[in-house]
Amino acid sequence: MPLITYRQALNDAFAEELARDENVFLMGEEVAQYNGAYKVTEGLWEKFGSKRVIDTPISEAAFLGMGVGAAMMGLRPVVELMFWSFAYVGFDQIINNAGCIRYMSGGLINVPMVVRGPANGGTNVGATHSHTPENFLANTPGLKVVCPATPYDAKGLMISSIRDNDTVCFMENTLLYGDLGEVPDGAYTIPLGVAEVKREGIDVSLIAHGRAVLTCLAAAEILASEHGIEAEVVDLRSIRPLDEETILNSVAKTHRAVLVDENKPFCGVSSQIAALLAEHAFDDLDAPVLRVTALDAPAIYSMPLEKLQLPDAQAVVAKVLSSF
């Protein structure tokens, strides 16, 4: 299989879907002529033209809402947020409109839209540009939330998200855009709501999504080589719908869970997983459910401190060791 970047995998997904379905169009700030702030949409405007790949002004509320309106009419907008942090100025459109219209119309109207862009800290851009809103969005019944960790997952999940008839909030990661991975040519789908065990293990389950999955994989290697602990790494891939079965199966096997999450700890995704384990894995647990999350402060600018603020492999290793 070809080795390509996470960025290219997404780009391939867009190209596949733009070519397959004329209702699909891309829209966002500088996605067309500028080729995308992070070059995720590079070359697509040249290939598909201004009708299908559309630059918008800096008006998140308006173009998110425009996406909702177009989706109600049967188009399949893929709306880029230059940063997911900018979604906050368009929350009304995502939550009240994309998230609630199907319900409030008694099922008469669908909003088959993808809202996508990078959601992560770790790039020293300060608090306003480092938000990870997957927990806020997954809190809204009606929305789906996807956070791929690898190029392979990014492409398969993006194609599924574009074809999905509900609104999918797709969270990428600027730190992952350059990561290489094996990705097949051509279209393939990965169903939403299916987690993947990225590494088998028997001693502890590391449960994560997005870039934290890679942190877990690195931690698992250290745990194996230095401590003789075989960690299983569960990549949620999709936050809502959530593959609870894979989580519970893993914990039933390892009897320990350490949740790793670049979300903040308070009411973050890991809080939901912890509640799940308390409820459904109680008798399987041989240790308390532990968490490694972003430190509970706004994302700091200072470089060494921001590193400290996000979960890293050593923090995960330390947390795992503390449970034995």
Binding site: K51, A62, F63, M66, G69, M73, L75, D92, N97
Partner: peptide
Amino acid sequence: YWGGHGIVAGQTPLGLGLAFAIKYK
């Protein structure tokens, strides 16, 4: 008829989207 929206002005970009779809199609 596309609603029926509770948040003041929240429907205006949706109207834009309807127009966008009309033109797109």
